[in-house]
């Protein structure tokens, strides 16, 4: 296994450790995908619990998010332990920003998930749609490559990819982790707008529709 992972380094031109790169992208992408996917079904899946007056629909999303954070921190710890075991250099350029990237991505996933969960109550294709787009999103979100490397090949494609907010999150995490990469393509304002719009419209819709969600 050691050999295989080392081998993948030499095949690419970059200096950074591609195995660590993949772990970072996969964990962050799955964090997003699972927060979104889990919260999408939170209202419809826990309908039977709403017979207890004290259970508000948003509780079910919060509960699922807590489980998600718990699982993700276990997975992260396992990867870190494996990294130490293999003697990888895992020193991060700016660990604080990497953490912020994860947390920010989680908040973004929660906001979008809340919107999807509300939509799913009234139109059940919304939840299915999320399931369908998560696969292509995996390839379009800069999980397996850095935008820098795409930019060298084709600036137009890189520009196009940057419309996807997830790419910015990936770049933020990668750029702040590796000394050989940077966050020059990251538009923090663009990320903030996406997060704020989804989160606040989700919360506003929720407050507006809570009673209808309970009695649906």
């Amino acid at each position: 296994m050691h050999m295989v992972l080392r081998g993948s380094d030499s095949s690419s031109n970059s200096v950074y450790d591609y195995a660590v790169f993949l772990v970072l992208s996969m964990t962050s992408f799955f964090l997003f995908r699972d927060t979104l996917g889990k919260s999408a079904g939170a209202f419809t899946g826990n309908k039977s619990l709403f017979i207890y007056r004290r259970v508000k629909p948003v509780d079910t999303i919060v509960a699922r998010m807590l489980v998600e954070i718990f699982i993700m921190s276990i997975i992260m710890s396992i990867f870190i332990i494996i990294g130490f075991y293999l003697g990888r250099d895992m020193h991060a350029k700016n660990l604080g920003m990497v953490f912020l990237g994860y947390i920010w991505l989680f908040v973004f996933g929660f906001g979008l998930g809340l919107l999807v969960a509300i939509g799913n109550v009234f139109y059940d294709f919304v939840g299915k749609l999320v399931g369908y787009i998560s696969m292509p999103l995996l390839f379009l979100s800069g999980v397996f490559y850095s935008i820098q490397s795409v930019y060298q090949v084709s600036p137009d494609v890189a520009q196009l990819l940057l419309y996807n907010p997830l790419v910015h999150f990936m770049e933020m995490i990668h750029g702040n982790y590796f000394y050989d990469l940077d966050d020059r393509f990251v538009d923090y304002e663009y990320m903030a707008i996406w997060t704020a719009v989804t989160l606040f419209s989700g919360l506003w819709l929720y407050i507006f529709l809570e009673k209808r969600i309970v009695s649906s």
């Binding site: 309908k47 039977s48 619990l49 017979i51 007056r53």
Partner: peptide
């Protein structure tokens, strides 16, 4: 205060 409606269905995981 009211209990939850006791019926045949729901309320359990």
């Amino acid at each position: 205060s009211f209990s939850w409606p006791m019926g045949l269905s729901g309320g359990f995981i």
